[in-house]
Nucleic acid binder design. Sequence first.
DNA 1: CTAAAATACAAACGTTCGTTTAAATCGAAC
DNA 2: GTTCGATTTAAACGAACGTTTGTATTTTAG
Lengths: 225, 225
Amino acid sequence: MQSEATTHDRILDAAEALFAEQGFESTSIRAITAAAGANLAAVNYHFQSKETLIHAVLARRLDPVNDTRLSMLDAILAQSDGAPPDLDGILHAFARPIFEAAFGLEANPAFARLAGRISSEPGDSLRKLAFEHIRPVAHRFFRAFALALPDLPPVDLIWRIHLSIGAMFHLLAASDFICEISNGIFQTPDVETALLQWVTHTRAALLAPAAKSNLQQQSQLKAAG
Amino acid sequence: MQSEATTHDRILDAAEALFAEQGFESTSIRAITAAAGANLAAVNYHFQSKETLIHAVLARRLDPVNDTRLSMLDAILAQSDGAPPDLDGILHAFARPIFEAAFGLEANPAFARLAGRISSEPGDSLRKLAFEHIRPVAHRFFRAFALALPDLPPVDLIWRIHLSIGAMFHLLAASDFICEISNGIFQTPDVETALLQWVTHTRAALLAPAAKSNLQQQSQLKAAG
DNA sequence: CTAAAATACAAACGTTCGTTTAAATCGAAC
DNA sequence: GTTCGATTTAAACGAACGTTTGTATTTTAG
């Protein structure tokens, strides 16, 4: 089954699994090629270098996810022309593709931890890569959120999107963690449960009144009084 | 100033900064000792190994943070005997100590990225360490949240705490990320702003009605109808 | 002041790393 | 069947890694 795939693809599969378990730095090309049943030089032949291989591993999964996200967002925006778009629809468009790729039936379970770790990886190279992958998606979704939440100041909106994305990353990267600590209450999430819980969580956070510091509250009270 | 500190402490400071920038694996003992102005063998003399050094770097910051968290939680719980404890007080007790250590005036700005990355680090050793650090804190706070939110089912509570902690980690680890992408709208957070935004976000999420799947909603509708 | 313990140092250890090279093997086109 | 490009292979390269060793040097204690 796996050994029928090309060396190129077997290397991508093995690298994805090992990167997820051990991290990028700790995973040697020797371990990858051994797991893929390939020669040591195969990585440098099919991909130019280890860094290019990392990029290829991530792009293979993230590009389809982001394409689906934008397609689903287009559908939501087209569906409600003029009126503010459906908030839950935007949240699902952002969350379902990545949850399917991470927790879906045909998904590689290792990919979840890998995807959730990207944003906090050390080193400029990898952060820049993830940055370029997510930038167009982030811009489109930010504008959609702004349309759906016209009363929320932009700075508060950015904060909440930032925090909600962090919750999503953590859900992808560290859910085994909470599984152990919760005495079986929390179980490895499936797509629908993760989606339901994250959307419920994020919807409530986004719909909350704008945060106001004590200072702002005081000046507001003075203006009102 | 720095060169007046002991070699032991200069190594901890240098290691903390380099670990935050480059990660644990990519930071060599040679780079640490060079930055600390110490001999190459100093790490293996003052600490036993590189792994023990990593543990020491984390414990130096996290132990005081967790002690303060528990003290503040005790104060909140004592203040409201019998009645459900103040939710905002619990949230502040959990968030303020780590935000002070990460964004405070005398804080090492590198520590924020380091702290936010721990939960998603690959490899069992480091995850187990962070696990043991946070376990007693997590248990105490979970019971406090359960008291403050008596109507929320435990499984939903675990989910929301999990997601909220993810938001906190991401805020610590990847806020430079959002600074770049937001065209100056989002700026490097200070303690009070981070606290205000995270508490606002998390309070709203925790107070939301329990998530219900379509299946659960349908059976509920049938029972009501 | 001196003996002993603690710390610092230079040098080297064996190992593993990513990458490269050159030859060997394979596969299809003609 | 031969040729040519694509792929695989074994072997080696230099560099960097964590750690250890033996010896200075400094600090502490009596």
